[in-house]
């Protein structure tokens, strides 16, 4: 359906914006390494199911893309364009996010099986993975416009999945409660950012926190 397609496209575009921003400016200023590491974890734990579950060639290619691009971005951030200044303000305690997601995945899953727990873990972790990045924005008080486009596209992906789930619930009778709940949590976390993005960036102002 259209929402899912738009969501996936938005997800893809977000990564391309980020890669393009880093490569062109040859800098990772203002980008949270911790958030990027969390995304590697999210993609690895959710998408390694491609080794034992086949959905479609589209699904497989997208999974491979997200796993490899996220690892590549972390590689660029650590080795190629290391930025100690940015690292110093990247102080969000992600061990709590990882630990919390792990505990929640043990409690909420569809089956108490390794693959299912990993899947649930990735959903919980993804819902909060942007926090170090938003925390960094809050500390610096402003961001490069491209960085805000990246965050917006990344947030739009999960937000667009919400009407997709409603659509699938109506048309297929399928409901994935975990994905829906974590998707809503994620969208709420983004809501503040969306609001500022809409009011400032889209109207041509710089991204500055009020």
């Amino acid at each position: 359906n259209i929402f899912r397609a738009a969501g996936d496209l938005s997800h893809l575009i977000s990564i391309l914006i980020l890669l393009n921003t880093i490569q062109k400016s040859r800098s990772i200023a203002g980008i949270s390494l911790k958030t990027q590491i969390l995304y590697v974890l999210v993609f690895l734990t959710r998408y390694l199911d491609l080794t034992y579950r086949y959905v479609s060639i589209y699904n497989t290619l997208m999974k491979l893309f997200f796993i490899s691009s996220s690892i590549y971005i972390v590689y660029l951030m650590i080795y190629k364009f290391k930025n100690t200044e940015t690292e110093q303000i990247d102080t969000f305690p992600i061990e709590y996010l990882i630990g919390g997601s792990f505990i929640l995945s043990l409690i909420f899953n569809y089956k108490f099986q390794f693959g299912e727990i990993l899947w649930s873990f990735s959903l919980w972790l993804e819902s909060v993975a942007i926090l170090p990045q938003l925390f960094m924005l809050q500390r610096t008080g402003e961001a490069r416009t491209l960085t805000t486009h990246y965050i917006f596209a990344l947030g739009a992906y999960r937000t667009l999945y919400i009407p997709n789930w409603i659509f699938r619930w109506i048309s297929e009778g399928r409901v994935d409660y975990l994905a829906i709940f974590t998707g809503i949590v994620q969208t709420i976390i983004y809501s503040d950012f969306f609001y500022i993005y809409y009011h400032r960036v889209l109207k041509g102002f710089k991204f500055e926190l009020p």
Binding site: R4, D8, H11, Y47, D49, R53, V55, S56, N59, M62, K63, F66, Y110, W119, Y161, N164, W169, E172, G173, R174, V175, D176, L178, A179
Partner: peptide, 10 residues
């Protein structure tokens, strides 16, 4: 509502 959740999304 179907019980089986298929992980076919990204």
């Amino acid at each position: 509502i179907k019980n089986e959740v298929v992980h076919d999304e990204l």
